[in-house]
C-alpha cells in the first residue's frame, strides 16, 4: 500500500506541475493579489516565477485543485462520473475567481483518466490518489518555500515557458 501511495504521489505531482507550467502559471500573476504572495517569496530569497505559480495555486482552482477534487469525487461516486462532475465544478470555480484559464478543468480530466487506467489495470484505489495529491501539494506549498519556488522556476525554464 505504501508503494502504491508513492506511485500515486509521483503521478499526481507530475500531472499537476506539468499542466500548470505548460498553461503558463509561472509566467505572470493570473488574478489580483498573486503579486504580493510572489513578492513575499522573493523576499524570502525564493524565485519570483516560482512564487507566481504558488500564488496562482493559492488564488484560483488550477490543475492541483482539479487533481484533488477529481480523485475525491471519483472516490465518493465510485465511478469516473465523479471526475467529470469535479471538472465542471472546477470550471465554474475558475470563473467565480475571475481566472480565464483552463488549467483546473484539464487537470481534473487527465486525473480522471489516470485513476481510471490505474484502477482498472493495476488495482489502485482512488483514495491513494487523494493521499498522493495531499502529499504533492505539501511538498510544493508547505515544505520549503525557497526550495520549491526555485524548483518550479527551473522546471518552467526547462520546458521553455519562461526565459
Amino acid at each position: 500500500m505504501i508503494l502504491q501511495i508513492i506511485v500515486a504521489f509521483i503521478v499526481c505531482w507530475l500531472n499537476f506541475v506539468i499542466i500548470d507550467v505548460f498553461l503558463g502559471l509561472p509566467e505572470r500573476p493570473g488574478v489580483r493579489g498573486v503579486r504580493q504572495i510572489a513578492q513575499s517569496i522573493k523576499e524570502y530569497r525564493g524565485h519570483i516565477n516560482g512564487g507566481y505559480m504558488m500564488g496562482n495555486i493559492v488564488c484560483s482552482p488550477d490543475a492541483s485543485a482539479g487533481t484533488l477534487l477529481a480523485s475525491a469525487c471519483y472516490y465518493a461516486f465510485s465511478s469516473p462520473l465523479g471526475g467529470l462532475v469535479a471538472a465542471l465544478a472546477v470550471f465554474f470555480g475558475n470563473r467565480i475567481c475571475s481566472d480565464p484559464g483552463y488549467a483546473g478543468t484539464t487537470g481534473a480530466l487527465t486525473t480522471t483518466l489516470w485513476i481510471y487506467l490505474f484502477s482498472s489495470y493495476l488495482g489502485f484505489q482512488p483514495e491513494y490518489f487523494i493521499a498522493g495529491m495531499v502529499l504533492a501539494i505539501f511538498t510544493i506549498q508547505a515544505l520549503h518555500h525557497r526550495f520549491s519556488s526555485k524548483l518550479l522556476a527551473r522546471i518552467a525554464k526547462k520546458l521553455g515557458v519562461i526565459e
Binding site: G33, C59, P61, L69, C97
Partner: peptide
C-alpha cells in the same frame, strides 16, 4: 468536498486581493 474547496479558494482569493 467540492463546495468546501472552491469556496475556501475564493476566500484566499479575496484575502490576497485585499
Amino acid at each position: 468536498a467540492l463546495a468546501y474547496f472552491i469556496f475556501s479558494t475564493m476566500e484566499s482569493n479575496a484575502i490576497a486581493s485585499t
